[in-house]
């Protein structure tokens, strides 16, 4: 099914249909991740691929138009490159350990410690969160920085209209009111936000964590923008408020690391944060997960604001 969707994406010429198919593709791959036991990954893929990416692509289509012309040059050279790459990969898989076998080297060397010891060492049952937020916390900080870097890029490129639009409230004339939608959204948004908070603070026990929570929280605001328009959303959360928060999230993460340094550990060694190392781990993880959630939520909102306000300007 995934393969079929992928081929459909290649064959289609209407970019709008392609983006929709891409959303479906993301949902399908999320379900495959579930089958493969990667619930956290599935959660994220669904929220990001089917949610944020698709939304941003649609936002871009509004500006760029959505028909693709048929390509002029022949597909021979790309096909050769692709075949070659594929062949190298298939060749590479020939000596790969069999799929799913428990005695593969991947499951032998580093992973057992995460599985066997992390519930004691780090003190939380979700091993993905332990590895993400403690053993490999530095990677996760890098990930937050990448999100931050994307924000810097988007702001530099398309910017955000900071103020409300100059002509107040006249927008209602040219847009039909959508009472049903607006009431539905008003009902839904608080629940989405509560769910986001749950995901944020429950990430230690079930699937979830700062990143997913941030995306969900941002999607609540995005829903608000879509139903009420950008001006009302600005009244709710202005971009000038979000901007510093995005940087503060990064600094909260990095600051946690600096504090652990000052307290005598290496960067991001939470064990020094409390007398009991396991308790310290918990404090550290909560702090950085909050930093992640803060940056991700604000960055996603800001990027979305940027795309929408650019679209309005173009229109």
């Amino acid at each position: 099914m995934l393969a079929a969707t992928a081929i459909a994406v290649i064959r289609q010429h209407s970019l709008f249909a392609i983006v929709m198919l891409f959303g479906i593709y993301s949902l399908l791959s999320a379900s495959i991740f579930v089958v493969l036991d990667a619930v956290d990954v599935a959660f994220t893929e669904a929220a990001v691929g089917a949610g944020i990416s698709t939304m941003l692509m649609l936002g871009t289509l509004v500006i760029t138009g959505h028909h693709e012309r048929t390509p002029k040059h022949g597909p021979v050279l790309p096909l050769v490159v692709v075949m070659l790459t594929g062949a190298v990969l298939v060749w590479g898989t020939l000596d790969m350990p069999p799929f799913g076998a428990a005695d593969n080297p991947v499951h032998q060397h580093v992973a057992p410690r995460y599985i066997e010891d992390s519930p004691q060492e780090v003190g939380i049952p979700n091993m993905v969160t332990s590895v993400l937020a403690s053993y490999r916390a530095y990677d996760t900080m890098g990930e937050v920085i990448v999100v931050f870097a994307a924000l810097v890029g988007v702001l530099a490129l398309i910017g955000i209209r900071e103020q409300k639009s100059p002509r107040p409230v006249s927008t209602t004339d040219d847009k039909p009111p959508r009472p049903v939608l607006q009431v539905m959204a008003k009902l839904l948004i608080p629940y989405i936000m509560i769910f986001a908070l749950y995901v944020q603070f429950h990430g230690e026990y079930g699937p979830g964590g700062g990143f997913q929570a941030g995306v969900i929280f941002a999607s609540a605001i995005i829903l608000y923008v879509l139903t009420f328009g950008l001006d009302d959303a600005y009244a709710l959360v202005a971009p000038s408020v979000l901007r510093p928060l995005a940087a503060l999230g990064v600094l909260l993460y990095g600051g946690t690391g600096v504090v652990t340094m000052l307290m005598g550990g290496t960067f991001l060694n939470y064990s020094v944060l409390a007398d009991d190392p396991v308790q310290g781990q918990l404090y550290g993880i909560i702090a950085i997960e909050f930093g992640v959630g803060l940056t991700v939520a604000t960055v996603m909102m800001l990027i979305f604001y940027a795309f929408i306000s650019r679209g309005e300007k173009a229109a």
Binding site: T93, M96, H107, H109
Partner: peptide
């Protein structure tokens, strides 16, 4: 990573020593 189960470079270097002929290693 599939071949060795590790990501640390020094550790990788040690563990791919005996795998010289592996086609997966060559693809990597």
């Amino acid at each position: 990573y599939t071949l060795t189960g590790t990501l640390n470079m020094a550790d990788l270097a040690e563990r791919i020593g005996p795998l010289q002929a592996s086609r997966t290693l060559q693809a990597a």
